[in-house]
Nucleic acid binder design. Structure first.
Lengths: 154, 154
DNA sequence: TCCAAAGTGGACATTGACATCCTATTTCCC
DNA sequence: GGGAAATAGGATGTCAATGTCCACTTTGGA
């Protein structure tokens, strides 16, 4: 349902927010999110073009969030890499269905609208703050398993 | 977001329900739904294997619905050709996220759940009965444009 | 009985998403 | 200035979804 690219982009952004604001290298994000590094690079490029992240070349470079976690929604990320395509006109090109969709496509679009809305209402900050046993994308801290935070610490 | 196959399957089923219960040939459905006939055949085979439709070979054969429109939901059709894959375990295979998903994937799964529920609650009968200007998949009758019903009439 | 209509199923082509690799280019630090 | 670290971006490979085609089977009717 969601493309691999969307899944990867969300993982990367969440991971980045989690270790914000210092940023991280592509390699570090790749390890933490289990996304193949070459692919992750392309995903991050798309996020950079959408200006959700900034990047710094060269030694001690890396990627970092370009916005506060409160201002970044899931929808922003999804739209940056693989926009949700709402059904805004009849896929059959029936002339009489100009603006009004037929009942079938109206229902389908309503489902898409639901996703869009849910994603628009969810900020990164909410995801990070969610009270749960599972830290986003990481092993639970109480097990003292290596998580991405550790990568940057000596 | 929705695969082509899902779109085609839904068109076919709605069209079939609309001209039920006599049924129709693949060619007729193809014309009415603007789905390429060779592809439509494969989609209909999947629907037949899922026992949503029955088919009759030979002259004066064709395809027809195997259930009442009241008993057939959008979800049935979607699941027959391209099932919605809920996220029921951590995509990163983190052991500590066994049953509980991390906040990110929990949100994503909730979005999928929303679609699933919307589709489960929508029957074909509701789509056909919906009070709207646009007949499902067809030009509006008030324009007297050819629709699928006409195909079977002399 | 034979033909035409219609679905069945497998083989084949095309396309786009997914994934990887290699060569720049930039930057820091010695 | 030179080398190591890191991103940028184009070229290429792989595979599943999409789309097409053909030979076969079934069936009703002339």
């Amino acid at each position: 349902m969601f493309s691999r690219t969307v899944e990867y982009a969300l993982r990367a952004i969440v991971q980045l927010a989690y270790m914000a604001p210092q940023g991280a290298t592509t390699g570090q994000i790749s390890v933490a999110t289990k996304v193949p590094e070459p692919y992750l690079r392309k995903v991050l490029q798309a996020l950079r073009r959408a200006e959700l992240v900034t990047s710094q070349r060269g030694a001690s470079g890396g990627v970092r969030l370009n916005r506060d976690a409160e201002e970044l929604t899931i929808l922003d990320v999804v739209n940056a890499v693989d926009p949700i395509e709402r059904i805004d006109r009849c896929p059959l090109d029936l002339k009489s269905h100009g603006v009004r969709l037929c009942p079938l496509h109206a229902r389908m679009d309503r489902a898409l609208q639901g996703i869009e809305q849910a994603f628009r209402e969810t900020t990164l900050a909410e995801i990070l703050a969610e009270p749960t046993l599972s830290t986003p994308l990481c092993e639970t801290p109480d097990e003292h398993v290596s998580c991405t935070r550790d990568v940057t610490s000596p």
